[in-house]
Amino acid sequence: MNKIFRLPKESPFLNLLRQTDKLAEARNVEGLKDLIKLILRPIQSEHLRDAYLKPDHEARESLSWAHSLGFKSYLQFSLNDTFYSHRTFIEWCTSEECAVKNKNLYPRLKLSSDIVLPTPWHPLRILRNIGSIGEFRAQGTFKQDPSNHIVIYHYPLMIGWVGGGNHSIMQGIITGEGNLVPEEVHDISPLIDEVYFDGVNWRDKKDRKIGQPKYQEFGWCWEIARRIKALEDSPFKG
Rank of each mutant, 00 (worst) to 15 (best):
N201Q: 04
E232Q: 14
G70D: 02
L109T: 03
F71Q: 03
M170P: 01
W220M: 02
K101L: 13
S147E: 15
E183S: 13
I174S: 08
W220E: 01
V116H: 01
Q144E: 13
A230C: 09
S73M: 09
R60A: 11
F13D: 02
T94C: 10
E58F: 13
I224C: 00
D198T: 08
E177D: 14
E135V: 14
I169S: 04
A59C: 12
D207Y: 12
T20A: 05
F197Y: 07
K3D: 11
G164F: 01
L127H: 13
A66M: 11
Q44N: 10
P213Y: 01
V162T: 03
Y155A: 06
F71T: 04
D21T: 06
D114W: 10
I192L: 10
H86Y: 13
D187R: 05
N15G: 06
G163Q: 03
K9S: 12
H167W: 08
I36S: 00
I169Q: 00
G165M: 06
R208G: 03
R226L: 09
F71C: 01
R227D: 03
S132P: 08
G176W: 12
A51N: 07
K143V: 15
K110H: 14
G31T: 06
S168V: 10
W92A: 03
C221D: 00
A24N: 05
S234C: 11
D198M: 07
V162Q: 00
P55A: 10
D81E: 14
V185I: 11
G140H: 13
I169G: 01
N166M: 07
P156R: 03
L17S: 01
N104L: 15
F77P: 06
V100W: 02
N104F: 13
D21L: 08
V195K: 05
S112I: 10
N166R: 01
F197A: 00
W92M: 09
P8A: 06
I150Y: 07
P55W: 08
A225C: 09
E96T: 11
M170S: 11
E10C: 09
I228Q: 02
A24F: 03
G31M: 07
E46C: 12
A66P: 00
E96R: 11
D145T: 14
L111T: 08
G165Y: 02
L53E: 14
G178L: 09
F218A: 02
T20C: 07
L7I: 06
Y153N: 00
G211H: 02
D198F: 05
H67V: 13
H67Y: 15
E25V: 12
N129H: 15
V181A: 07
A51I: 01
P235I: 11
S147M: 13
V195G: 05
I188A: 03
H47F: 09
S95H: 09
L117M: 11
D56T: 09
D198K: 04
V29F: 07
T119P: 05
S68G: 04
P12M: 07
H167M: 09
K237P: 08
W65A: 02
P235K: 12
D193N: 15
R41C: 06
T94L: 11
L180H: 05
R128A: 14
Y153A: 03
T94M: 11
K237F: 13
C93I: 06
K9T: 09
G165W: 02
H186I: 08
K103N: 10
K237W: 13
A99K: 12
T88R: 08
N148T: 15
Q139P: 07
H47P: 04
I126G: 00
D114C: 10
N166L: 05
